[in-house]
């Protein structure tokens, strides 16, 4: 469970796409390899954009969880 420890939460709820994705890219760039970032987004476009970017950039999407009124994405920086 240690590797699931979230080192940073990006609360982008209320921001329209690409706000949440831009915040994630920024957070991943600033993070160390192995760190886990949680992004909270209420924008529907994030469900498509965030997994696409994570895959293209070679990081790991640990989970996508539907919450009340928003989605939580857990992303691990892999390189």
């Amino acid at each position: 469970m240690a590797e699931m420890k979230v080192s940073r939460i990006v609360d982008a709820r209320g921001s329209f796409c690409p706000g949440p994705l831009m915040e994630l890219i920024r957070a991943v760039k600033e993070a160390q390899i192995g760190e886990v970032i949680e992004v909270l987004s209420s924008d529907q476009g994030s469900k498509r954009d965030i997994p696409l970017w994570v895959s293209k950039a070679g990081h790991i999407l640990l989970s996508v969880a539907e919450k009340e009124g928003y989605t939580s994405f857990l992303v691990k920086k892999a390189k």
């Binding site: 329209f16 796409c17 690409p18 994705l21 831009m22 476009g45 498509r48 954009d49 696409l52």
Partner: peptide, 8 residues
């Protein structure tokens, strides 16, 4: 981004 313009 996955598109040319930030606002979808």
């Amino acid at each position: 981004l996955p598109r040319v313009f930030p606002l979808e």
